[in-house]
Amino acid sequence: PSVALFNQETLQQRLQALIEGARESWTYAIFWQSSYDYSGASVLGWGDGYYKGDDDKSKGKGKTTTSSAAEQEHRKKVLRELNSLISGSAPSATDEAVDEEVTDTEWFFLVSMTQSFVNGMGLAGQAFFNSTPVWVTGADRLVGSTCDRARQGQVFGLQTMVCIPSANGVVELGSTEPIFQSSDLMQKVRVLFNFDS
């Protein structure tokens, strides 16, 4: 496939195929797109993301949020404003999209849209800069990471974060389950995300 196929629609399909076809239970997948900022520095910015959610939530046994009532109100307020921005209508207190509790992993995914990594910073930056996957399993390893985003992920309930470099960026996957390194997953990323080859 040529670079022309690299668009929002195919990205979404590829992220979805990666997560839904995996044996492991991934909570989300994000593609960090490589580009350059105005000073010429290498930047990984938001390309697209697919949020699947936590399996535990549907089983009713999982901890979906550790947030206080005030934090929930804040999250819902932000979602209401974002929804209004997207739909072009005034914020509504009874919008279906925001009435539901905003889980920790949903919030982490949303906040991700505002993030970027410059010159090899963070797990994604390291993976891209060194052309080597970064696989972090376990809350203790996430807490001990030098990457702010990894520590933040642990706070929001993640137990695994993975960054796999591709031709034009980095595929990041996160899970609330401990998942150990899988060559099968890395091979899938190479096939699905190496647009230039």
Binding site: Q8, W46, L82
Partner: peptide, 26 residues
């Protein structure tokens, strides 16, 4: 970099739409 805000907007719209669908089917 100019493509990033558009990508975020599309992703956000999709995320909110999926939340809405989940809320309505619950």
């Amino acid at each position: 970099p100019s493509a990033v805000p558009q990508a975020r907007k599309a992703s956000l719209a999709r995320f909110l739409e999926k939340r809405k669908e989940r809320a309505m089917s619950a």
